[in-house]
Design a protein around this nucleic acid. Structure first.
Lengths: 210, 210
DNA sequence: AATATATGTGAATCTCTCTTACTTCGACCG
DNA sequence: CGGTCGAAGTAAGAGAGATTCACATATATT
């Protein structure tokens, strides 16, 4: 566990970043619920009140963590986008990457979805999230060329839901234990995306009854 | 807000149930994070330490709430099962019901997914969850008659993920504001399920490369 | 009725969040 | 170079919640 080495100087250098890192450590160890500003401060070697110079409150610090998480996610999406040649492939790859992200950066995923953050309250977070999703939007648009924007939106939502759900299930243990579970879940997410794409015409029909 | 009417007798009658109800109220008002045992006790009109006669700690009380939530969910699933004639229809209806549940019983949904409960730690919860899912399992089995159990499992997971994701998106506001959002999201979940089912053969193929 | 058990109470202890009133550093100005 | 200002830290404390313990009082059992 990272521990309070006494700083060389009175000032820290980059306390915000250090606190975010400490926060992820704590979330790793005991979940978002278990994270406390006080403990993060202790591990960073500063007084309990120091964090409040940089973050207005506990939630604000978590929001900063969430931004870092979304940025990491976007980075991973970008990698997939460079590699995959077809739109359908890109969508499937993004879904799989999302699932991997959840497992390999579990604390980040937890902060993103278990901290009860309201995006509207944190514009930076909202912006970052929109940017990360833009890639998927673009790929989806290529697949619904004649369709209205609304069709693109429907498709993106269905796929987002799919990826989100698979990630949640994976962390809930529905795919088994760590060694193989990640690959399995990622493969499943990829396949599910392909299946959804094949049947996608049904997404745009309005059902006869409610 | 429900308030501490002084009890007739020293004993409460059914304090555990009252506390669970109070907890849902609090979650409704300020989220899982905002829930506190102390406040629940106050609203129920008992001392701050009374809850600990029935629940070992805060998390244990939340787990009881989660059990209640899963039971409500199962009840809703059962209704759909009686109404829908075809297996595919049942699966789509269950997905839609799940999405409705998330919106109409939001505090329940939040407790279920935002309280950081580890199922293995609460056998009653695990049992209840398994029972609720059994319906979907059965319907899926009818659709993969020749397939191995593993195929059924794959399908259930894909659909569970789909429903879960749509519910999450709905509560995140991705489907717009309350009046129409619920119906919209439920319809989408239904359509997405249908799409997934149509393309389901792709779920069972093993991809050539990773 | 006598006793045991379950259910509540009150007070005490810890820890956490967040605030306020100082310090201390380092940069910038004259 | 000395002085001053703001940013970044600190110490101490108010207020709230979690949890425990010793004690009180219903309820159930015999």
């Amino acid at each position: 566990m990272a521990q309070a080495k006494p700083r060389a100087s009175y000032h820290h250098g980059d306390l915000p970043a250090a606190l975010v890192a400490a926060a992820f450590e704590l979330v790793e160890e005991s979940g978002v619920q278990g994270f406390s500003v006080a403990e993060a401060a202790r591990r960073t070697g500063v007084s309990i009140s120091a964090p409040y110079r940089h973050f207005s409150d506990r939630e604000d610090l978590l929001a900063a963590c969430a931004v870092a998480a979304v940025e990491e996610l976007k980075r991973r999406f970008d990698v997939e986008l460079e590699v995959e040649p077809t739109p359908a492939g890109r969508l499937a790859a993004i879904a799989a990457a999302y699932v991997r992200f959840a497992a390999e950066r579990r604390p980040m995923f937890e902060v993103l979805h278990g901290a009860g953050l309201e995006k509207p309250k944190y514009p930076r977070l909202e912006t970052a999230a929109t940017e990360a999703l833009a890639a998927a939007e673009a790929a989806a648009r290529e697949l619904t060329p004649n369709g209205a924007d609304s069709e693109t939106g429907v498709l993106v939502q269905a796929l987002t839901g799919l990826a989100q759900g698979h990630a949640t299930l994976l962390l809930d243990g529905a795919f088994g234990e760590p060694p193989g579970a990640v690959d399995l879940a990622a493969t499943r997410a990829r396949a599910a995306t392909a299946a959804m794409l094949r049947g996608r015409s049904l997404l745009f029909e309005t059902p006869a009854d409610g």
